[in-house]
Write a protein that binds this DNA or RNA. Structure first.
Length: 478
RNA sequence: GGCGGCGUAGCCAAGUGGUAAGGCACGGGCCUGCAAAGCCCUGAUCCCCGGUUCGAAUCCGGGCGCCGCCUCCA
């Protein structure tokens, strides 16, 4: 058993993971801003934190996982100006901000459930923790970290020497060519809003009273305030997409370390890389696949996306192409078939014989969550011609709590898929007539006629599949 | 301008000093009248150049190419 090692963004190194409190792990993952459905890139981040959690649970640790729901405070344009995205969506849909947030929060939960992400222990909403956020802002104000300008209360990053630490920022060089929107009165380019004042004459759907006047919290504030409430002033792991490190997480660190006087606030910062969409940039207008529903509409099982995710390491950009997701779907289907077959075995396995495989699987994940290597073990077991079926069954089902691929229900899932395929067979007088003709030819062993009919139908894009209960047909690509 | 990542078989993707995991596709085989499904078998010396080393995909230097972030984008 090798020790658990994770890569930590702050120290830019792989370190042995030890919970701050033996046996217990506190995890915080940056969640969705609920103004639109999550896309598959968001889903990768979610799957990453879920895999991490499942692995820690399998290690016997008690995990408290917090994922926030950002239902206020995101602005449409750059800098700290522009319209709130949720408010914009609400206006567009003719609904309230709460309705928009509620709807997309549900979509986020449904999508997560569809890919078997375990529900977090806490799923706090920013709007339900305004007092906590104000309390933190007051601490920061008391510490002299904030200053007030026309549109809000800002954090003075020059008061926090470690500001650039997490993302290893070069603030000098960065300011030179960055497209940083200029906010009148900011002391440093990196300074950010902790509390924004409601604009005079503009009535927002979401605003609250505060010691500094009516307004709303800055985006970064919620994560600092809610994590301390549910995980304490220091905790073990904070996850998120790699893009969050330079701004969002950097600002969270500034607020939390200055507000609570702790360091390091978070023991391990773990960031997942992006999905590489290649030339087909994700965009609704181009009609490119980007949400889980889009995949489902194309006949991709949500869990095939989870299988796809497990095939690449979380810190590598993963190329998402049509061919890649299709091949994942095929691989997943076959793996399910193998497990479904093994489920019928009633023999007892031999734990000693299984041990080496369990260890390889576990050690791959202990090695900075190397899922691809763990999957290689899965296939070694699935297709082993030396391991008895009982051991293969025990091993694969033993991996399931970490994989989350639904292998424990493989038999039922395969049966359901078969039933769905049955329903997909179509009927049509003309084609069914030709099929009957072909059957007659087959019965007479007139293969030439039989094949001619099939070829003719194939030319029309119709595929015939023979089965014990007779021939069926469907349109290709359906 | 700054920060970061990548370039391994047709595609996806592990592998950070000792003679290249795994998945998908292709090809071959079994099965099937044929086909589909399923099962089995089969493939690479690691972008280029130079260096370090007994030995490098793995370390160093220099190229070329690609991607992300620096905008409240995961």
């Amino acid at each position: 058993m090798s020790p658990i090692e994770f890569y930590d963004t702050r120290t830019r190194s792989r370190r042995v993971f030890e919970p701050l409190e033996p046996g217990r792990v506190g995890m915080y993952s940056c969640g969705p801003t609920v103004y639109a459905p999550p896309h598959i890139g968001n889903l990768r981040s979610r799957l990453f934190s879920d895999l991490l959690k499942r692995f820690l649970l399998a290690e016997g640790l008690a995990v408290t996982h917090v994922i926030n729901i950002t239902d206020v405070g995101h602005l449409v344009s750059d800098a700290d100006e522009g319209e709130d995205k949720i408010e914009a969506a609400a206006r567009r849909e003719g609904k309230t901000a709460e309705e928009i947030a509620e709807h997309f929060t549900q979509v986020w939960r449904d999508d997560g459930a569809a890919v078997h992400c375990l529900p977090p222990e806490h799923n706090p909403k920013a709007t339900e923790h305004i007092p906590e956020q104000i309390e933190l802002a007051q601490r920061l104000e008391a510490g002299g970290y904030l200053y007030r300008i026309a549109d809000g209360l800002y954090f003075d990053t020059s008061r926090f020497p470690r500001y650039a630490e997490l993302a290893h920022l070069d603030l000098e060089g960065q300011a030179e060519g960055a497209r940083i929107g200029v906010v009148e009165g900011k002391r440093n380019p990196a300074d950010f809003a902790v509390w924004k004042f409601a604009e005079p004459g503009v009535r927002r759907l979401q605003e609250w009273d505060s010691p500094w006047g009516r307004g709303f919290p800055g985006w970064h504030l919620e994560c600092s305030a809610m994590s301390v409430r549910y995980l304490g002033e220091r905790f073990d792991i904070h996850t998120g997409g790699i893009d969050l490190a330079p701004v969002h997480h950097t600002n969270e660190v500034a607020q939390s370390e200055c507000g609570y006087g702790v360091h390091p606030w978070v023991n391990f910062w773990m960031h997942n890389e992006f999905l590489d969409m290649g030339s087909e940039k994700m965009s609704k207008s181009k009609g490119n696949v980007k949400t889980l529903s889009d995949l489902v509409a194309r006949g991709i099982d949500p869990l095939a996306f989870r299988f796809f995710f497990l095939q690449a390491h979380y810190r590598q950009q993963q190329s998402f192409t049509d061919e890649a997701i299709q091949s994942a779907a095929t691989g997943f289907r076959r793996l399910q078939g193998i497990v479904a077959e093994l489920a019928g075995c009633d023999d007892a396995g031999d734990p000693d014989r299984q041990a080496p495989f369990r260890e390889r699987f576990r050690d791959a994940l202990a090695d900075d969550l190397n899922a691809p290597r763990a999957m290689a073990v899965v296939w070694d077991v699935a297709r082993s011609d030396t391991l008895p079926a009982a051991d293969r069954r025990d091993l694969l089902l033993g991996f399931e709590p970490v994989l989350g691929l639904g292998l424990d229900e493989a038999k039922a899932r395969v049966a359901a898929a078969t039933a769905r395929a049955e329903e997909a067979w179509e009927q049509d007088p003309r084609i069914d007539g030709l099929l009957a003709e072909r059957q007659a030819a087959r019965a007479a062993k007139d293969w030439a006629t039989a094949d001619r009919i099939r070829d003719e139908l194939a030319a029309d894009g119709i595929e015939i599949v023979d089965s014990p209960s007779g021939p069926r047909w469907r349109r290709k690509g359906a």
